[in-house]
Design a binder for these strands. Structure first.
Lengths: 339, 339
DNA sequence: GTGAAAGCGCTAACAA
DNA sequence: TTGTTAGCGCTTTCAC
């Protein structure tokens, strides 16, 4: 590793004191002569001494490093969460190391090994899409690694979890459509084997019930996050003799595909048909018209995850894992009508 | 740091051999009895032994960690570059630690300290917008830290650099406008104190010259990345009696603001006016109409940066820093006319 | 082929 | 208040 950096030994020699004195001065321990301390600090400054955190970690058996592993960070979602994590972690004097699994179980396992080898104190984890075997995770937990899960939650695994209230988000979105005069509201639904797919559908259904609107099977389309399908189903909806006056999409990419289809049919949003997305892709504000969407508190997700982890780190085995569910917020733009 | 993890000592005791033998077996050193080795590896497996990289780093005085510091990673640009970095780094058995300066010089300095303390082997760095004093960087370099710069380049600083050919990108964009029949092409320009601002303007000017179109001062607008200004200047352009038939914007946010303004004036893109952006915001493909834009090879930028750094790490003081300039590519979508 | 021992830079008893 | 010493987990001579 490059040139020799100065060590406490170098300082000790020059000042003709022992290395423990230097160490004490540097850590402002109580039992130290102010004079000595001053001299040490000045020389350290002069030499541009940087403590070797590797040695300290080894000695103290404590790295003060939190690991974060996400499937990807090309979309805005995870970077924003990480921002929140870093905020809290840095304030508590933890460093954060970030790895990404590229949605590959293999890489996830490999990275987890690396994290263990680097002796991270705890892990904040969003598993990959294809992670269905949790052996590596369980084994890490068994070795005492605290893990906080977010975004992709596995109910079976122990540990704290941070999630978003998809049900409430969906409910609010549909409620807004109803309150702005829509009466035939279709849902471009997600996969029903995923929690978010189910919860968002339930929010949609319950909003209709609450406002005593009929539920029609023919208005619920299983788009399932699949690109081609959304277009097809949207077209089918538009072809209905009694076509819907609003679409609630399970997420923004789905909503955007619907939007394109609607516009190609020569219809206007929101005059002919209102549209609400979910999860706030960064560009949903920039398309034409800017899209009303349910946004998740990404920053907050990160903050909560970091806080839970650090609490667990501090409290040790006394800590009982918690699950935090954060509300999503409807951001009203121009793809829905005015109230 | 959590529960005790097994060490080579645990393995040695159980196998009744010395720790050096275990160490040798684990690193598949040459001088080792295959039998012994097998036994060690099996037990290691069974105990789920993870080498303590901290100890190894301390002993070998080598961390195999590359630091990356970027101003932010909320927009797609830096995450994509980091992807490229990680690809190369992982293949070469380096770990990557990522920090972000949040465009703050203070944090940049602080993070650099932390990187030095963590004894990263080298650094890939995009400085903040406000970094005008390079003392901290120079000092790190003087201590032997190899640094590769990208995105925000400072000519004065030594070290390898990876940049994008802004001039060529701008030239290609304007050439495309000309070849699709535009004749009065305006430029929404960036700050002329920044290299990218100047280079993109020059590309624009030279394309006009090459195709023998007149250069008109009144068509070059100093939008300078400032939000309100772009709208104002675009409106001014549209108000000209002989209004331009194309706009080349210094970057995508500027282009998008112009787009909104154009549409509010009831004009169509590209029928009334063509529009080209630069630097490919992730959403430029999703707006209406999808925007023609000059895209940067983000992945490649990362790969080059990592390769340069690792070469420097391997070659040591023999290494002579290099500057790599990568071409940008015009992606033709629907905001410009057909050829 | 294997073991003993030193030491990477630092902290924390313990002694003085 | 300061110094001496052991040792964190590992690698690497140097003996045998």
């Amino acid at each position: 590793m490059r040139n020799k950096q100065p060590t406490i030994w170098d300082i000790a020699i020059k000042l003709n004191v022992s290395i423990s004195t230097v160490s004490r001065a540097l850590r402002n321990a109580p039992d130290i002569n102010p004079e000595t301390k001053k001299a040490v600090l000045e020389l350290a400054q002069e030499l541009d001494y940087q403590p070797n955190t590797i040695a300290t970690s080894l000695r103290k058996n404590k790295t003060n490093i939190i690991g974060v592993m996400v499937p990807e960070f090309v979309h805005a979602y995870f970077p924003n969460v990480i921002l929140g994590i870093q905020e809290v972690a840095n304030a508590e004097d933890y460093k954060v190391i970030i790895m990404q699994s590229a949605e590959s179980l293999e890489i996830e396992k490999h990275n987890l090994q690396a994290m263990m080898s680097s002796r991270v104190e705890g892990l904040i984890l969003a598993i990959t899409r294809e992670t269905n075997d949790y052996g590596h995770i369980i084994s890490a937990q068994r070795k005492g690694l605290p893990i906080v899960f977010f975004n992709r939650i596995v109910d079976e695994l122990p540990g704290s979890k941070v999630m978003v209230n998809d049900y409430q988000g969906a409910f609010t979105a549909v409620e807004h459509l109803i309150q702005t005069g829509c009466r035939r509201i279709a849902h471009l639904a997600g996969p029903q084997n995923l929690t978010i797919g189910r919860n968002r559908l339930n929010g949609y259904l319950d909003a209709l019930k609450t406002y005593q609107l009929p539920i029609e099977e023919s208005l619920i389309m299983p788009c399932n996050f699949e690109e081609g399908k959304t277009r097809m189903y949207t077209q089918a909806l538009l072809n209905q003799t009694n076509r819907p006056d609003a679409l609630f999409a399970v997420n923004d990419p789905t909503a955007i595909e619907a939007l394109i289809c609607i516009q190609e049919n020569g219809m206007n949003i929101p005059e002919h048909i209102s549209l609400v997305g979910f999860s706030n892709a960064p560009h949903s504000a920039f398309i034409t018209p800017p899209m009303t969407s349910v946004v998740q508190p990404l920053h907050e997700i990160g903050r909560h995850a970091a806080e839970l982890l650090i609490r667990q780190l501090n409290e040790g085995t006394h800590f009982i894992p918690e699950t935090h569910t954060l509300d999503a917020k409807l951001v009203i733009r121009k793809s829905t009508r005015k109230a």
